[in-house]
């Protein structure tokens, strides 16, 4: 949450990625954020073992959107038993590509002085929504026509009571841009665009009917498999 403005994009709460029982006492919980155009993996590392932990390092497996650590994991002091530290790892998108199932799955290896540990986590696709994702209006109209209807996916966003303008503002904080708004038969139709870090564009039509808490989201994208993940991020952003 927090106050409005361009830096208030949606951040999921931290979840446990590596339970201590699976990692000889090391517990890692984390989340992903996009801040000022950069992606960060924010983690809490807890030492639940009886010995000091040192020599931390992190690696990602190849993944769908080329996520890779932008720098080594910076942990400057040994992690004492019962100690927890917060770490923010800068992440870039110039790693190697390998399509994962699910698409947003990230396999991570973490080592310390005790052993090497592996875990998987899921990142919300909104960390990949770039700041220049506002499509030119003419290009939007042409692209919307050009993408065949087989590539249109529809989803219901349930139990949402925001106005069309509140929806636009909230989504824009997460780099989903409203290009046009029309009211037809009392329904607000928002035309929106976003662009992923790998250059994939997603076009959206969000239909809001007065008195109806269920919005209809139509997504058009040449890469069809991203649509369910985009829907999930719409839900999270709007319900946050």
């Amino acid at each position: 949450g927090g106050v409005g403005g361009p830096s208030a994009s949606y951040i999921a709460p931290k979840s446990v990625w590596l339970p201590a029982v699976k990692a000889k006492g090391l517990e890692i919980s984390g989340t992903f954020v996009r801040r000022m155009g950069s992606i960060y993996m924010e983690m809490s590392l807890s030492n639940n073992a009886m010995q000091v932990m040192t020599d931390f390092a992190i690696q990602f497996n190849k993944n769908s959107f080329c996520l890779a650590p932008a720098a080594p994991l910076q942990i400057n002091a040994p992690l004492a038993p019962n100690q927890t530290i917060e770490v923010s790892l800068a992440v870039n998108t110039v790693g190697s590509v390998m399509k994962m199932d699910p698409l947003n799955n990230l396999q991570v290896a973490v080592k310390n002085n005790i052993d090497v540990f592996y875990f998987s986590c899921l990142y919300p696709l909104n960390i990949l929504f770039v700041e220049d994702g506002k499509m030119d209006r003419q290009v939007f109209l042409a692209t919307w026509k050009d993408i065949p209807s087989e590539n249109e996916a529809q989803f219901q966003i349930k139990d949402c009571t925001l106005s069309a303008d509140a929806v636009s503002n909230k989504l824009q904080s997460s780099n989903i841009f409203t290009i046009a708004k029309r009211t037809v038969d009392g329904q607000d139709m928002l035309y929106q665009s976003l662009k992923l870090t790998n250059g994939i564009w997603v076009l959206a039509e969000l239909r809001i009917q007065p008195g109806n808490p269920n919005y209809l989201l139509s997504l058009k994208c040449r890469a069809r498999e991203v649509a369910p993940h985009i829907f999930q991020t719409y839900e999270k952003i709007l319900k946050n």
Binding site: R137, L141, M189, S218
Partner: peptide, 20 residues
């Protein structure tokens, strides 16, 4: 505001989507 015909095009799109 500059009328480049796009405002009208978006109106047509919205109408076509609500009354296919």
């Amino acid at each position: 505001e500059l009328d480049d015909g796009l405002d009208e095009a978006f109106s047509r799109l919205a109408h076509s989507r609500t009354n296919p």
